[in-house]
């Protein structure tokens, strides 16, 4: 394993893209920053700008309005960047999949590297998903 991939693996900065979610996933994401789960142990950090992102974490279903924005954010992020589809909505569309505004699922819009299913996924599931993503780097 080279120095480059080691450093990348050790310092994944996460940018959170919230699609049309029911908002529960967004709340769950903040859980992994709390004392109990603390993902900063792995060097992960939430960042505010897609330019700094190594991981784009997409929660919620993607509707017609989100689609161009998601593409734009993916385009803006500095490569290499990994995409994680979070929650049932992110993976497949979940309960919103039959809605008239639905434009997803995420993997038909941008390439996805990891899926974290659940409605909403437990914080443990999120840590497990992210650590599996780390192992693939």
């Amino acid at each position: 394993m080279g120095l480059k991939s080691f450093c990348l693996k050790k310092s994944l900065w996460v940018y959170h893209f919230a699609g049309a979610s029911c908002n529960n996933c967004d709340i769950e994401i903040l859980d992994v920053l709390t004392p109990r789960y603390d993902v900063e142990r792995f060097g992960m950090q939430l960042v505010g700008s897609p330019r700094h992102a190594d991981v784009i974490l997409i929660s919620g279903s993607i509707n017609q309005r989100d689609k161009p924005r998601l593409k734009e954010v993916y385009h803006q992020a500095s490569k290499p960047v990994f995409v994680v589809a979070f929650g049932a909505c992110g993976c497949t569309g979940g309960v919103f999949a039959e809605g008239i505004t639905f434009a997803g699922p995420v993997d038909q819009i941008v390439p996805v590297d990891a899926y974290i299913p659940g409605c909403p996924p437990k914080p443990e599931a999120m840590i497990s998903g992210l650590s599996k993503l780390m192992q693939t780097i």
């Binding site: 450093c7 050790k10 060097g43």
Partner: peptide, 29 residues
């Protein structure tokens, strides 16, 4: 900061991982 918030916090070399990742791996836009 992590200790104040009762968290465990990052490993010792974390700032260097961050720096090297940005320097070597990431694309400059």
């Amino acid at each position: 900061t992590a200790q104040v918030q009762f968290r465990k916090g990052p490993p010792l070399l974390q700032p260097f991982y961050d720096f090297l990742k940005l320097l070597l791996v990431k694309e400059t836009i």
